[in-house]
Design a binder for these strands. Structure first.
Lengths: 253, 253
DNA sequence: AAGTGGTCTAGACCACTAC
DNA sequence: TAGTGGTCTAGACCACTTC
């Protein structure tokens, strides 16, 4: 371990600043407390505001700070654990689902989605929008892509759009036999619409969870969920695990 | 869907720039190609270099670009899928493990780790350092924390440190009954040592995967793995899934 | 209206790579 | 040595929230 030669690099100012601020947060501030404004902080540390901001940005990325335009910078609470890999295989919309249907429409999906669904690139699919809350705050926004062939018995009687339509589509989905599922997590930045729903600015870092639901030997539904990367820790429960409460841990420094 | 009122926001320049560049990348550049340098690009678009850099930063975060000091900015290949949730429960170091032992030492872990392991905060544990490659590039660095009580039969004959020691510790670990495991993913920034191993600058965005290995009713080992967020897509295979090849997909725009 | 964070500029110098 | 991206400055103005 500790024997990597420190190679006389002049540490960037913002990096050092970040360390100093991080320690100050641990010892001198409590959750929710408001920090001095950026101009004052920069002056206090004798750096330009842009440099100070570079340090704050990193701390926000790590979930230590929360900044809101017009308000100020506050000390963030520890990240909330958000369960993603519920072990029991279940379709979206099954009982106990953490998501809330928001809307539904029929439209042509992005090419990458169409390819995964093996629908034609010009073929419209059902797109269900859902949102997920935790501790009173929005933590994720989801787009669920469902080919018409996955919900063949959807009646024209159901509402043509809106939450009622979304629920109808999800209800039909339950009729299929779920054969397996498949998940991927990657870093992304929030699109304008997701950002608004997550109460962040466009471009904010998000964890993008792509899930494929398999039935009848093909992808019967595809979910693209964007989680706030600053406030969320995605948890995956796997077989045999007892219940865990990570509590107010910090990442190993 | 599409009915969120567009509220007359003047789109920031860097955001618009990002969009323009993104489309240019799709249509006019191929993977590995070198972009014009930042000063030229900024001049070409009529913006300050800092603004141009803000756009490039986002594109790099999304895995579209790769920037290397002294070299230039190149078009990044699609993110590589890296399997994380191998369904078969197995201890680190089991056959077929994707990780390569690098080093091993005995030291006091960070407080958060000690708490998770339920060891005393001053009690040293084995710390195994491992690295993971994919397509010839380093994609992740890991610290594995193993309490002495989890490997009681570790003999003094084994090497006191280095890769041989690491292998010895891992070998002993296999003797325990793995009862379950537990995983979490969150966004972080690379520490200096991880950054060097991942061939990135300190502070680079990483996906931190924390895994707990349960045996004998407690946490017998804890792994903290940091994956390059720019180049990796973490994949989780779950029950029943057929093999999937996401291929050169892009995230749904 | 006052105060906050967000965007943007036009420079400068530094660290690193490649020739 | 020349060229690249990385850091830093000292300003300016804008968008947003709160009072």
């Amino acid at each position: 371990m500790g024997t990597t030669q420190l190679e006389s690099v002049p540490e960037p100012k913002y990096w050092h600043l970040k360390t100093v601020l991080s320690e100050a947060l641990d010892s001198e501030f409590s959750v929710g407390e408001i920090l001095p404004n950026e101009r004052d902080l920069a002056a206090r540390f004798g750096v330009a505001r842009a440099t100070l901001r570079q340090a704050l940005e990193q701390l926000e990325l790590e979930g230590r700070l929360q900044r809101r335009r017009g308000v100020g910078t506050t000390v963030a609470p520890p990240r909330v654990g958000v369960a993603v890999g519920t072990e029991e295989q279940a379709w979206p919309g099954a009982a106990g689902d953490a998501w809330q249907p928001v809307d539904c429409a029929e439209a042509v999906p992005p090419a990458a989605v169409a390819d995964a669904l093996e629908t034609g690139r010009d073929e419209p699919v059902h797109i269900v929008r859902r949102s997920r809350m935790s501790h009173g705050q929005p933590v994720a926004a989801e787009l669920l892509y469902i080919p018409a062939s996955s919900v063949p018995d959807l009646t024209a009687i159901d509402a043509p759009s809106g939450p009622a339509r979304a629920r109808a589509v999800l209800r039909e989905l339950q009729h299929l036999d779920l054969e397996g599922q498949d998940r991927a997590v990657e870093l992304g930045s929030a699109r304008a619409d997701d950002a608004k729903e997550l109460d962040r600015l466009p471009g904010a870092p998000v964890l993008v969870v792509t899930s494929r639901f398999l039935a009848g030997g093909r992808t019967a539904a595809l979910s693209v969920a964007t989680y706030r990367a600053d406030t969320c820790r995605l948890t995956f429960k796997e077989s045999g695990g007892v219940e865990i409460d990570h509590g107010p841990e910090r990442r190993a420094s």
